[in-house]
Design a binder for these strands. Sequence first.
DNA 1: TATGAATGAGTTTTCATTCAT
DNA 2: AATGAATGAAAACTCATTCAT
Lengths: 208, 208, 208, 208
Amino acid sequence: MPAVTKTSRTSSRLRLRRRRERADLRRSEIITAALTVFAKHGFANTRAEDVAEQAGIAKGTLYLYFDSKEAIYEAALEYAMTQLRELVSERLQSATTAAERMRVFVGTRMEFWSAQGELYQMIMTVGREKHQKKRTAKIIRESVDQINLLLREGIERGELRERPVEMVGWAVMDLIRGMNERRVDGAQPTTIAQDAEFITGIALSYFR
Amino acid sequence: MPAVTKTSRTSSRLRLRRRRERADLRRSEIITAALTVFAKHGFANTRAEDVAEQAGIAKGTLYLYFDSKEAIYEAALEYAMTQLRELVSERLQSATTAAERMRVFVGTRMEFWSAQGELYQMIMTVGREKHQKKRTAKIIRESVDQINLLLREGIERGELRERPVEMVGWAVMDLIRGMNERRVDGAQPTTIAQDAEFITGIALSYFR
Amino acid sequence: MPAVTKTSRTSSRLRLRRRRERADLRRSEIITAALTVFAKHGFANTRAEDVAEQAGIAKGTLYLYFDSKEAIYEAALEYAMTQLRELVSERLQSATTAAERMRVFVGTRMEFWSAQGELYQMIMTVGREKHQKKRTAKIIRESVDQINLLLREGIERGELRERPVEMVGWAVMDLIRGMNERRVDGAQPTTIAQDAEFITGIALSYFR
Amino acid sequence: MPAVTKTSRTSSRLRLRRRRERADLRRSEIITAALTVFAKHGFANTRAEDVAEQAGIAKGTLYLYFDSKEAIYEAALEYAMTQLRELVSERLQSATTAAERMRVFVGTRMEFWSAQGELYQMIMTVGREKHQKKRTAKIIRESVDQINLLLREGIERGELRERPVEMVGWAVMDLIRGMNERRVDGAQPTTIAQDAEFITGIALSYFR
DNA sequence: TATGAATGAGTTTTCATTCAT
DNA sequence: AATGAATGAAAACTCATTCAT
């Protein structure tokens, strides 16, 4: 019965794919929910059940998709960072001068976090807890390196004066973080473009 | 029996005062202990018993001096901030120009937190939790105002060019925070003086 | 439409019978699987899903054939005991003297459990839990009665001396159990035949 | 103030001792309670809270005295086995011939378990669970060795005929276990003395 | 009929807080 | 005032059972 067999095979494959898609959907629903509630109350003050409630599912269902509360956090982080990386590298393609590139880099990050403000808060609280510190540090380090690279390219191209780059990289990240936080709290009255301009100005003034 | 009455009154007042002094002593011992252990493991991961142990007293004794674990945190924060305020205002008295004053302001804060690094960590983690956010925000706001005042005085005295001051205040606080964190983590290779110079330079370059 | 009716009746009966056969098959597949996994990890430490997996079906399917995990256990027990009963009575037919019959009885039981070692373990753990105790006790009681009967026949036939029989019946069961357990654990260095001989010898020595 | 110091030291020592005594008392209360309820429903089917309830304390209090539910079980086992060992070795001192010694050994064990029937049940259920098997096996092995020693001494003294001893040791333990179980269940109509006599008779008949 | 995703009651353990001593 | 034993609410996680597909 080759025909029958083939049909059944095909349909079982189809079912499998659909199942996987559903599972992926659920996972991302849970991640989204987690971002919301972790951010609202912090990681430690959020019960696994709160995440489930926010996702509109039962407590137990969480554990069908993740091994632990911690694993949910990690997945959420991973998810957001991948998105951010992609967004930044995409936007940077259309920028050439160091100043432009810096503006794009800073502005994109601010937009992203502004849209995902809660996630940002979550990283800022959870990421400071002992067992997550390394992971968070690595993520930030990566961004600093990107800024430094951007500056060094500017120096090589003669756009910027020869000066040590390292501290400026960190400073830019510090400023982005602060502004993000205030924006999330509704305490930043300026626009993202203004902030990006401000930070870029400050950073590049160092190289004049 | 007036004589007796008087004597007894006096001695009872004396006893009362001594009692209060003893109580204040105990309170500050607990606060010191709390700063140490909260900072080492964060607020949520520290048990009330850990605080008691560090203070060399029994668990139950904590509750004779504070209403709750939370109250201990608040007292610790209050205490540290008062100390910082006093230190900064004392040091500022010997500084006159805006640049000097900024250097002193930044440097003093960095020294203070560097000596109390753990406390700083604590504020950074606990302070971001919802129910503490307002309190933390107020504390930071206060510092920003101080920087802004300092800058405006510089403008009035003609040392700095007329420019909006607000964003720079926040920026300075953001930079101080970042450097503090990295220093606590052992990730800041520069000296406090260098950092203070760097921040001051960046901030004042905005007014040239 | 009698013809049609008849045809349809017949075919529906046929279908019904086939359905029942299929259901019985499934039930016994599940039982077999249950014996394997319950025995390997005990009743409490085995999840319904483990049984399903072993049976190569889905979790939910279990509940089409059994009301509960407990019901599966009971069915498995019933099944095994029926098998054992049949095996023993078959083998006993070729044995005549009390000694022979005892040897066969003991030996057959040991062989059976040895082949189904895991099941034996399961009964020994699960069967001791309160709600299963009565059932297990009844099963053992049945065996004891069989031994006692066997002994009384020996007495009647003059092969054995007149002595009370009851305690020996229990003793034989106790000894079988112990040796079974040790064999399952790999701690019994002797053969089944030797064990059967040992137990028979001890039991019958009581009647000399 | 040596006198004062001394007094205070003494009283603090006293307090310490009393505290330890109280703690020991609590521990044994918990152990007793655990024996009761574990035995009644088995280890897996008993919630930690049931133990606490039986002991007349709160759930959390358990964990002041034991690290885990499992630790309670182990302590209970340890406790009982120590008691049994002591009791048996004490009673054996007054017995000389192999027959007497066997009777004492068997009888003492039966008395002990009969008084602590629930504990016995517990060991029989919990002890068969995978992760406890080794511990239980070791305990039984110890007893078998004792019986074997007892028999070998009898052989050496010429009271018993030279025969292999090992299987009899196990058999005696099997018989004791069975009778114990039935007595706990109220299904053993004979007295302990009668049972001990029966087992001794059977065991020694092997050496005639 | 068969599936397996979803459920939520139930389990162990922790720890802030109380209170008898 | 000081203690620390006791409490019980709360949290993470498991799994027998149900039910939409």
